[in-house]
Structure formats: C-alpha cells, structure tokens
Amino acid sequence: MHVCGVDEAGRGPLCGPVVAAAVILDPARPISGLNDSKQLTPRARARLEEQIRSHALAWAVAEATVAEIDTLNILHASMLAMRRAVEALATIPAEVLVDGNRIPVGLLMPARAIVQGDALEPAISAASILAKEHRDRLLVSLDARYPQYGFARHKGYPTPEHLAAIELHGVIDEHRRSFAPVRAIVDQARLF
C-alpha cells in the first residue's frame, strides 16, 4: 500500500505561483534527515531534494498560476496545486497525507489532513522539500529577468525590500494583485 505525502510552498509571497509536491517514499530506501523544509538549511534541502528524486518510488511537482491565485484565492489555488501534484504521480497512492487542516477537493483516493505534517510524516517532509526547492528556483529565475526586485533574496515574501521595490518599480505580471500590499500599490497608482 503506497502512501503519498503532499505539501505546498509559496502561500505567503506576493508573487509567483504556489507550488505543491507529492511524494511516495520507498520503504526499502529510507532518506535520513527529512524535516519541514523551513527547518532545513538551503544546503541540506538541496542534498535531500537530490535523494528524494532518486530514491522515492514516485514524485511530482505542480503549480497554480498567479492568475489562478487571483481568481480562486490562495487557499483554493494551493489545494488545486496539491491535487495536480497527486494526479501527476506515476504511481497511484492508496492514501494521501496532506500537510495542514484541509484536503484538496476532487482527490480520487482516501486522504487525511495532518496539522504540522511536514514535521511529523516523512513523505510530507519530502514533499515540502521538493515544493520549496522548485519554487525557490522559479524565483531565482525571475530575479534574472527583474533584478531590481531582489527576488533571489526574499523569494517574493513581503519584506521591506520587496515592498520598497514594488513602490519604486511598480507591479509586474508575476505579482499577485489579490494580495493586499500589491492591491494597495495598484490602487494608489490609479490615483495618479
């Protein structure tokens, strides 16, 4: 019976997609050091990502776009990305373990929500790592296109640096207009 862990990365940032990953670990090839991605150093996450990709029975990464986030809201877009990740797995899991207190709508197999599951369930920890690493790479790539925003440093979170850059340079397509700090800057720009 294959159990899949699912987690997302990027609910709080002001830009970019929300990313989810689904992972079915191989009990015969345990990976040591799995933990909530936020508790790991970038170097540890990179090392573990490599091991997860090579040792897991199956894994998949999926996204919900900025347009989907602005249309659905961040919670529903996160659930959509999670469902997409599970559906993209090459192996169908018997059960899905989801980090948090909600289960994505439309899953075709039993699922359980586990609060703080990314620190409790190794498969969810693995999903957390894949999602975070994937999203961080997207923001580093975005930084190469828009260096004035500092995406490689703050990964899109609403830091003083990011907010100041939006004020100075304006909102780009990758910004989530439904998020209050971005919406406020857009509304302010309309006044002039």
Rank of each mutant, 00 (worst) to 15 (best):
residue 117 G to A: 04
residue 100 G to A: 09
residue 176 R to V: 08
residue 139 L to T: 08
residue 94 A to W: 06
residue 4 C to Y: 01
residue 51 Q to P: 01
residue 165 A to P: 09
residue 49 E to D: 13
residue 60 A to Y: 00
residue 34 L to H: 11
residue 109 M to C: 15
residue 170 G to I: 07
residue 16 G to C: 07
residue 179 F to H: 09
residue 47 R to K: 14
residue 23 V to L: 10
residue 27 P to Q: 04
residue 185 I to N: 03
residue 162 H to F: 11
residue 80 L to F: 03
residue 69 I to T: 08
residue 145 R to W: 06
residue 190 R to Y: 02
residue 71 T to F: 01
residue 128 S to Q: 03
residue 127 A to S: 12
residue 81 A to N: 01
residue 133 E to V: 15
residue 44 A to G: 03
residue 161 E to H: 11
residue 29 R to H: 12
residue 151 F to R: 13
residue 123 A to Y: 06
residue 145 R to D: 14
residue 75 L to H: 09
residue 33 G to W: 00
residue 21 A to M: 12
residue 20 A to K: 09
residue 66 V to Q: 01
residue 90 A to V: 13
residue 118 D to T: 08
residue 45 R to T: 01
residue 73 N to G: 00
residue 128 S to G: 10
residue 111 A to G: 11
residue 56 A to N: 11
residue 32 S to A: 14
residue 41 T to F: 11
residue 95 E to D: 03
residue 45 R to W: 07
residue 43 R to C: 02
residue 127 A to Q: 05
residue 45 R to S: 07
residue 71 T to Q: 11
residue 43 R to W: 03
residue 28 A to E: 15
residue 171 V to M: 06
residue 82 M to Q: 10
residue 19 V to E: 03
residue 172 I to F: 09
residue 123 A to H: 04
residue 157 Y to A: 05
residue 175 H to V: 00
residue 164 A to H: 06
residue 177 R to M: 08
residue 125 S to H: 06
residue 99 D to F: 08
residue 97 L to V: 04
residue 136 D to C: 11
residue 44 A to D: 13
residue 10 G to Y: 06
residue 11 R to L: 05
residue 101 N to E: 04
residue 10 G to S: 06
residue 30 P to T: 07
residue 24 I to M: 08
residue 176 R to A: 05
residue 83 R to F: 00
residue 66 V to M: 07
residue 67 A to W: 01
residue 55 H to R: 15
residue 137 R to T: 10
residue 137 R to Q: 12
residue 74 I to P: 00
residue 173 D to W: 05
residue 122 P to W: 02
residue 188 Q to A: 15
residue 23 V to N: 12
residue 103 I to N: 01
residue 169 H to S: 09
residue 125 S to N: 05
residue 31 I to K: 03
residue 138 L to Q: 15
residue 188 Q to C: 11
residue 154 H to L: 09
residue 80 L to W: 02
residue 59 W to A: 02
residue 102 R to W: 00
residue 133 E to Q: 15
residue 137 R to C: 05
residue 170 G to E: 08
residue 169 H to L: 08
